[in-house]
């Protein structure tokens, strides 16, 4: 019967909303209650160190090239043993969209995303962070990886001396 269906369709919703009235709200009341983001959450970016405590970043500019909003800038420099590093390294978090492309592009695992999402600020200029602010004392997500122990030009071991490397080949020796 149409009319009974209509009456039911009118009254049943009242019952349901009354039930919701006594259900616990789904809201997370932010400053008091905080959600724990998953470990791979993409928020504040850090620069990590390798297991020996040296800076991982080799100032290759791959991250700044990958960044869609161009918020990473740096100046490359070189130490005496030929190891490259960033003389200064700057991320403008006011522009960063936390896409994570920089962390994917990085060959040395230096730049990494962390779940620390509470970086809102009333002063955008204070969101421009320098290398001192970005550099942390740990390895981040990978405790073992050290770029120079796998490749690179003879900084830790002599050229070709890493365990997964072959000794350099003398091209002239191949000439028939």
């Amino acid at each position: 019967m149409g009319i009974w269906r209509d009456i039911k369709g009118t009254l049943l919703p009242f019952w349901i909303t009354l039930g919701y009235l006594f259900t616990k709200p789904a809201t997370i009341q932010y400053p008091e209650e905080k959600r724990t983001p998953p470990p791979r959450y993409r928020a504040r970016i850090v620069l990590t160190r390798d297991p020996d405590g040296n800076e991982r970043c080799v100032a290759c500019h791959l991250c700044s090239a990958a960044c869609p909003v161009d918020c990473i800038s740096m100046q490359a420099a070189e130490t005496e043993d030929g190891r490259r590093y960033a003389a200064w390294f700057r991320i403008n978090f006011a522009r960063c969209i936390f896409c994570g492309l920089c962390a994917e592009a990085c060959p040395t695992l230096a730049i990494q995303m962390t779940p620390d999402y509470e970086i809102c600020n009333r002063d955008p200029l204070s969101l421009v962070q320098e290398k001192e602010d970005l550099l942390i004392d740990g390895c981040g997500k990978d405790e073992e990886y050290n770029f120079y122990r796998h490749s690179g030009i003879g900084v830790v071991n002599p050229r070709g001396g890493n365990e997964d490397e072959n000794a350099p080949v003398n091209p002239k020796a191949l000439v028939p």
Binding site: T17, Y20, L21, F22, T23, P25, A26, T27, Q29
Partner: peptide, 10 residues
């Protein structure tokens, strides 16, 4: 408040 609670908000 009541509307909020009916929509599972505070």
């Amino acid at each position: 408040k009541i509307l909020g609670r009916m929509q599972l908000r505070h």
